[in-house]
Amino acid sequence: MIDERRLREAGAVLAAESARFASMGWMRGTSGNLSLTLDRDPLRLAVTASGFDKSELAPEHVVLVDGKGDLLPGDTRGLIPSAEAGLHARIAAVTGAGAAVHVHAMAAVEAGFHWPEGVAISDMEMLKGIGHSAHGERVVIPVVQNSQDMVELGDRFEAVYRRPAGGIAEVPAIIVASHGMYAWGEDVAAARRHTEITEWLLRFTVRTRAR
């Protein structure tokens, strides 16, 4: 059974985040998507619906999906989950994330093009914002090849996801080649912060790369 009040509350949160990222040019038109994890057992996520301009997203433009990213029965509004809902569900299941963000930031696409094996970053103060030291660490943002099959793309994500002691990933973000980036966190604020900081780090790395 769908808790419509709870879903609408999640929609209001995602609509605000969507407007924020659209204003940065990272969610142009209907591109990009966001999710909130509402339940763990079984896994349930509020995900932005397909086909809506992200600068004008409304609280009702979200749907409830299961652990595979499929629309739960009972929603009679005719909305369709984002085509990438399945990857959001996999990220939530594997990382324990409470929220995930997918944007088409140009810096991520450029970085994935230049460093298809992963984008190495070190000695940057902003690394603190994604859980690392400003100096003395070499952090790698993984890059995976794109796929329209979310199971296949999820497998690629899981293959490069780091699980050191403590269960924290090396970085809470991944680049999908020729597409964009995903970032996640324990809640919406953390997912937003990780998205913005990772984009900044990628933009700097692209701009200063050896010609």
Rank of each mutant, 00 (worst) to 15 (best):
R162H: 13
L87H: 00
R90P: 00
V103D: 01
A134D: 14
S82N: 02
L34R: 12
I168G: 11
E9G: 05
V62I: 04
R162D: 13
W26Q: 13
A190Q: 04
L64W: 04
V63D: 08
I197E: 04
D187Q: 03
F52I: 09
L34T: 03
G86C: 04
V140S: 15
G11R: 09
H194C: 03
V139H: 11
E158G: 12
T76W: 05
N33V: 05
E56D: 09
A16K: 10
T198N: 04
D70N: 13
M181V: 10
I168N: 13
F52R: 15
E170G: 13
E137D: 15
V13L: 14
T198F: 01
G180W: 01
M1V: 06
W184G: 04
V101M: 06
M1E: 12
G118A: 10
G67E: 03
S133D: 15
H102P: 01
H104Q: 05
F157P: 12
S18K: 05
E199C: 04
A190D: 04
M126F: 14
S50Y: 12
E60R: 06
R5A: 08
E170D: 15
R193H: 08
W200A: 09
G32M: 07
V65P: 03
M150N: 04
E137F: 15
A93P: 00
L153V: 06
M126H: 15
S133L: 15
I91M: 02
E84V: 01
T76K: 15
E9N: 07
A111T: 07
L201A: 01
V140A: 14
H102Q: 08
M150E: 05
S133P: 03
V94R: 10
R6I: 05
L71C: 02
R90H: 02
R8L: 09
G98R: 02
A105L: 00
H61A: 06
V119Y: 14
P42F: 03
V101S: 06
V63R: 12
A89Y: 00
M27P: 05
L153W: 08
R28S: 14
A120P: 01
P42I: 05
T30P: 02
A83I: 00
V62Y: 07
E110P: 04
S23R: 14
R156T: 05
R6P: 03
M181D: 07
G98H: 02
G25L: 11
